[in-house]
Design a protein around this nucleic acid. Structure first.
Lengths: 252, 252
DNA sequence: GAGTGGTCTAGACCACCTC
DNA sequence: AGGTGGTCTAGACCACTCG
């Protein structure tokens, strides 16, 4: 008779380890507390250090652990809820600099303008609770600002940050029809990783926002949020205070 | 792909490898094409297989590669845009089953009802282009449906799927005030991973949706989307087509 | 059976931090 | 100096897929 053996295969050691460690940090450790070091844990569980690290990698991806070189591995704080919308974001984002240059092919295609068109790219960072949680490149074709009077402060050369503020102020005067967003998983490359104070390869949530004005694409923002510390929130804020602290698994 | 030199420098080998491989799959390989196997690549680049795998891990996390045991490593197709909203989702989700049980502490807390309250949990999967891209647990406290007449089809016992459809139909008749969403990174555990046809530990985008009716939380949905293949889209759909990406070719 | 990716080991050295 | 996590090696065996 057909004996269907589905669970005949034992689960990998690193996955079992993850489960054990997850229970441990949920019950025996407090946020911010340092857990035993990797060499001790691997000895205690009787596995190679690489195997233990595989389990820690998982928990770090889930935002449950933070590893600090030279320090140790800490239990992570719950993720911060970060509202994603143009409202009430004014204070959250800090302009860093701005470059104005002809658009490369790829960027021009994404903006729907001819290659070589002049585009302002504003770089901003978002700081939440004293920590940089996101960086953004906001691309604004110069033609989008044609109707908006230019802002001239002085004859002196503007710093990058001043240029950024000038572009943002002009953009604010545009009446926007709406926004369209996409969210996907990515990794931070060198420059972004540095701004986020994380090593290259750090997982990030990439939010692409299209701003429409006059039925056309007026600007494009590419924001990258630290996936380990951020929970992006959308829609009516403060609808219900309830927050599912941990992912809710079915209670069968 | 060419045998590139590894610059002996500050950045880790695996990160440099990732860059080299990324350029290669962008320029020399088509979607769906199998790249050389790990042992050959590690030999060609003069690194240990584990190091090469670290680079492939990154590219897989970015959704650029797909690894299939026994087959090889393939260049992934661009991510699918998946609209996230209650509109036009009717067809996308397929009910699987439904369990009705008293809420455990954690779930009750998330729903804002007393522990032990009767809660319907509808399990659904979302199929896009023939592939399961998401699973969802939709939690509906029975008290939310009090005002909606129960649907009685027969005296016979209903299958899980029939129960699910019944709950969904009743839920549809509620007038909703709005929805509030959060998106964060997670990993799929055993059951979810199986539904998504992926191994445990697979990165997923977890979307938590709160449905409000009458100023109260009427239902809570926890949806997990495959992070490797999905790009979640919000807001006005079809505003402008987003997708800078790279030239897409397909292997025959 | 041959080839693939997945897991695991037991080391080694490095970069970073604190004392 | 001593401890931590980060990187890297050179193997080994396993699970899966295919011809």
């Amino acid at each position: 008779m057909g004996t269907a053996q589905l669970a005949a295969v034992p689960e990998p050691k690193y996955w079992h380890l993850r489960t054990v460690l997850l229970r441990a940090i949920d019950s025996e450790f407090a946020t911010g507390q340092v857990i035993p070091n990797e060499r001790e844990l691997s000895a205690r569980f009787g596995v190679a250090r690489a195997t233990l690290r595989q389990a820690l990698d998982q928990l770090e991806l889930e935002g449950r652990l933070v590893r600090r070189r030279g320090i140790g591995t800490l239990v992570a704080a719950p993720r911060v809820g970060v509202p994603v919308s143009r409202r009430e974001e004014g204070e959250a984002w800090q302009p860093v600099d701005c470059v104005t240059a002809p658009a490369a092919d790829k960027l021009a295609g994404a903006l729907g303008v001819p290659a070589g068109e002049l585009v302002h790219t504003v770089r901003r960072v978002r700081v939440e609770q004293g920590q940089t949680v996101a960086t953004e490149s906001l691309h604004v074709p110069d033609r989008s600002l044609e109707q908006v009077p230019e802002i001239r402060l002085s004859g002196a050369a503007l710093t990058g940050e001043e240029q950024a503020r000038a572009v943002l102020r002009r953009l604010e005067r545009l009446t926007m029809d709406g926004e369209s967003r996409a969210v996907e998983l990515g990794v931070a490359e060198a420059e972004e990783a540095a701004l986020l104070q994380r090593p290259p390869g750090t997982p990030v949530l990439v939010v692409t926002t299209q701003f429409a004005a006059g039925g056309r694409l007026a600007a494009l923002a590419v924001s990258t949020y630290r996936a380990d510390t951020c929970r992006l929130t959308f829609g009516e804020t403060g609808l219900v205070e309830v927050r599912p602290a941990a992912p809710v698994r079915t209670a069968s």
